[in-house]
Design a protein around this nucleic acid. Structure first.
Lengths: 290, 290
DNA sequence: TAATTTTCCTGACATTGGTCAGATAATTTC
DNA sequence: GAAATTATCTGACCAATGTCAGGAAAATTA
């Protein structure tokens, strides 16, 4: 049979289903049904409100309760009412629960490590995984407002700078550019957003406050997440936040060697204006009235 | 959090697990438990011996029997003893069973189609899927001896020719090359193998009979499956078959612009010899005594 | 030919998972 | 402050799955 596009997707799906079935089976080795193991993992990953866990795992409320009682009886977690709203309950791992969670983590990590070691081209494999995870998880992308000095933000910015260095004929060195003071991208002056797909950062965008006007900075989307209209969603957020902060004018600079960026700003209703700074890298300037 | 290699793999795994859970759920829409649906699919995909289905799905023999009887009661399949060994039973879909199977197929295909349509770069997505499926399914690669005029074989050969055309400075046109008569790559003169990963062809290799000696032709491995030692496994098979067919000498030609091929033959104990044909493309020649 | 092995089937049973109808307590709305 | 709403828990129940011991029939082996 000649492989068609559809058959390639379905083969991928079969392979991956089989593989993740095996991984799930391996969890059973710790003498706990899958449901309980999944709850433990959710809590260990930082989801503590009972309702949030239920949503995350798609469980019925009855079943959720039963699983929690089971884990509580095992001494792996404690639940108590949420101080903010005593109808809710929050779950927390005990020391024993943390140990147990770590054991599951180790299991998963070892498997992942083995896959990585057995493959001749780890970079290509990881890139392929990012691409697919972004495509499949495009409904589960979340935006978070963070401090631009935050680890996640810094990681995005490093990738952004790295890409500019590759794509600009002149190269790119941060210290030659007008690097905005991080504090000008924090409320109340400005803001900084990162996009996360299941926890993995896949893009960022900043808003720098200049007093009476705002400047859009550092818009970047990871290669694996391009084409998902992420840049447009960033810009919508930035504009909304700018309005909140009382700005009526937004400006930004970019470079004609990044044609997709220039096209984006045109498409979103920005108008080209004259140079408004002396940064050596940009050569196209935009403005938008809110 | 900065993404590490491991965290990228695990994010991929989570995303894909969630997604395939959703797909499984969609099967439930046809009013049949997942186990029964999976058995129906296995039979529809051509696995007919009861034991083989059990292995494929990893089921207990008791459970297998019960699922088969359930489907039989529904009138979707019939089982009868295998004529070759009446202890075994083989299952076959009835017309109604086939219709039901087709309905599941349509469900899966529609989902795959939708994923494809929603993605801006289908080629990259499919390549990424092939790469990952080959990496995860590397234990499930099977080799099949086929007629070189077979659809699967022809598809591999087209890819092989396409790659030569790209990689050789001179380009590559099949009709200028000494294209072996297909019939010389069929037993008893020779043979032709394809490698399948879950049904998808990912490589091929032929053995052409010249009477008293054999020639290895058309060794190709799909880009997504490279690094998995597939070429070595092909060569082992070809050598074993050549011995079976009574050859004591094997020859092959290749091109110095394909350094990984030249390195492979050296590594496998072949010795360079003088040109033994007047094909315009090759410039390196090898021989091996069995 | 008798004993052993293989393959599948049957019945019994426990566990897990999924669903639903109240019960309880805290919070919000009127 | 009463009524409605929200979040969780409990108990009852059923379907699906997983597991095991043993049985019947066919094939293989001694």
């Amino acid at each position: 049979m000649r492989p068609t596009d559809i058959s390639r997707i379905r083969r991928f799906h079969r392979t991956v289903t089989r593989e993740s079935g095996v991984l799930d089976q391996s969890f059973l080795g710790r003498g706990r049904p899958l449901g309980a193991a999944r709850v433990l993992n959710a809590i260990g990953r930082g989801i503590s409100e009972v309702g949030a866990i239920r949503d995350y795992l798609g469980l019925d409320s009855g079943q959720m309760s039963r699983l929690l009682r089971g884990l509580e009886d095992e001494g792996l977690l404690v639940t108590r009412p949420d101080p903010a709203d005593a109808r809710r309950r929050v779950a927390e791992l005990t020391a024993r629960g943390q140990t147990e969670f770590d054991a599951y983590e180790t299991l998963s990590n070892t498997r992942a490590q083995r896959l990585l070691c057995n493959h001749p081209n780890a970079t290509a494999l990881l890139d392929a995984m990012d691409l697919i995870a972004s495509a499949l998880g495009q409904h589960a992308i979340t935006f978070e407002e963070v401090d631009p000095r935050d680890d996640t933000a810094v990681w995005c910015l490093e990738n952004y700078y790295g890409e500019l260095a590759q794509r600009l004929r002149t190269g790119f060195e941060v210290h030659l550019s007008k690097d905005p003071e991080a504090t000008t991208m924090i409320r109340p002056q400005g803001t900084f957003y990162v996009a996360l797909s299941d926890g993995l950062p896949i893009g960022c965008c900043g808003l720098k406050g200049h007093g009476d006007w705002g400047e859009v900075k550092r818009l970047w989307v990871a290669p694996s997440a391009r084409g998902l209209k992420l840049a447009t969603r960033f810009m919508e957020r930035i504009e909304a936040t700018a309005r909140d902060l009382g700005h009526t004018v937004l400006r930004l600079d970019t470079n004609s060697q990044l044609p997709e960026a220039v096209a984006l700003y045109h498409r979103l209703g920005w108008t080209e204006i004259d140079r408004f700074n002396d940064d050596p890298y940009p050569d196209v300037f935009f403005e938008k009235h809110l």
